[in-house]
Amino acid sequence: MSSLPSLLSMMTQLIATPSISCSQKSWDQSNKGVILLLESWLSSQGFQCEIMPLPGQPDKMNLIATIGKGAGGLVLSGHTDTVPYDDGRWQSDPFKLEERDNKLFGLGTCDMKGFFAIVLDTLRDIDLSKLQQPLIILATADEESSMDGARALVDAERPKARYALIGEPTSLTPIHAHKGIMMEKIRITGKAGHSSNPSLGNNALDAMHAVMSELMMYRKGLQDRYRDTNFVIDYPTMNFGCIHGGDNPNRICGRCELEFDIRALPGMNNATLFNEITAILPQIEQQTGTKIELNHLFPDVPSFFTEKESDIIRACERLTQKEATSVAFATEGPFLNQLGMETLVLGPGSIDQAHQPNEFMALDQIAPMQHVIKGLVERYCLTPSTDNEATRV
């Protein structure tokens, strides 16, 4: 079994391999380079590696690396892509790992290429020949945009394990829940005309006013119907993010578009919400004589929830000495739950540094994360039993 590069060397190589995913094609890139790096390192440690191109996207791929056999086991999961970067706002090259002030700077250091380097470095201290249950390293594509990598795994019904940890940056706090998110667009088509005579056209902005009024009442109803004290914002939210309509003050607006998001609580269903909004629109369409269309901007992400009493949540609370909580941002957690795994989100670095210029991971996050990884591998992979005895940690 060949030796791995140092932690800093692995992180340097990962950061130096661009893998931006973005809805804008000018930014979007393949993640193949990162996948091949991980595959080479994991193969050298005895993992059986399978690279899975996404359907219809040969330049995007997932990696499932497995060592050990059994019906239980543990998945350590992360995404290989990053967000775009703000050119000119970084104090250093975003693709060159730089250490200063006890921090590691670079695009993806905390979100979340650094997690893979930490996992691999931790393997040095684990005798992988003694595994009683499988250890699976999962690397996904396009989490920062479409989450198509995670969706492809659900469609393939793989991987299979009993427990999963997603190493998103949570400042080493166990996360057992987050809201879902759906992003939608309403397009209203009226008829343009000269503003001096309203009868010459049909104003799409007027119709949009009626739509937004109905959506505001719908939003208030959601907040009255649903509450979850696990969240700081303990109700579902609807945000009107941007609106575009018309082209000149002296022309009747012929088309108007509204883009908005909804963040649903665990237990709410995104498809139900979409259908309820769809049902609001025909009456307004009839009253205004316009054409109103509702479409998805992106595929929705379900809410994520794992019971606080689940074994992996309790184990990570003990390993971190922190109580599990919830977050506002979305992850691949609900998709791993759909695959039948008890899942939590816990990783090094802070979400406050993610998606920001001068992204960094503090050095003091590394050793505690390795402590968590070792504890979970010991609990779920090195012991013969996969029961929920709390005495093993």
Rank of each mutant, 00 (worst) to 15 (best):
I126P: 07
I233Y: 08
C253N: 02
G246W: 03
M217C: 11
V301Q: 10
A65H: 05
R392P: 00
L215P: 02
L4V: 10
L63E: 01
P5S: 10
P302W: 04
L107N: 12
E257F: 00
L38D: 08
Q57G: 00
P249Q: 03
S44L: 03
E98A: 13
S43A: 14
E184R: 13
N202D: 02
M182T: 13
F304E: 01
T170R: 01
P53M: 09
E359Y: 02
N202R: 12
V232K: 15
G190R: 04
R314H: 09
L339C: 01
R255P: 00
S21P: 08
G190W: 04
C110T: 13
S145A: 14
F116A: 01
I136L: 04
D93Y: 00
Q223E: 15
S385R: 08
K185H: 06
V83M: 08
M369R: 02
D155S: 14
M268G: 10
C253G: 01
N62T: 05
L36D: 15
G340V: 08
F47R: 08
F95Y: 13
Q356N: 07
E389A: 14
V232E: 14
G375A: 07
K69D: 09
I137G: 02
R151F: 06
G193P: 01
H194L: 06
I280F: 04
I313Q: 05
Q223L: 05
A152S: 14
P5M: 11
R89E: 12
F47D: 09
G193K: 01
P134D: 03
H178V: 08
T80E: 08
E157Q: 14
M11Y: 01
A150V: 05
D87F: 09
P174E: 06
K308N: 10
L7P: 09
L42I: 00
Q132C: 11
R392Y: 09
D127N: 15
T109C: 14
A367S: 11
G72N: 11
K69Y: 07
D125G: 07
R162L: 14
G340R: 08
R251M: 13
M147D: 03
L319M: 07
T386F: 12
C242M: 14
P357N: 00
I51V: 15
Y226D: 11
I252C: 07
F329H: 09
P266S: 05
I351R: 03
D81M: 06
I188A: 06
G114P: 02
N31I: 07
V119C: 08
M208T: 06
I292Y: 02
E168F: 06
D121Y: 03
A71D: 15
F360N: 07
I262L: 14
S199Y: 11
L205I: 12
T173A: 10
K322I: 07
V83A: 11
P299W: 03
K185C: 12
L14C: 06
V393S: 07
K103D: 00
F305A: 09
A324Y: 02
D311C: 09
T173N: 13
S303V: 03
K308A: 14
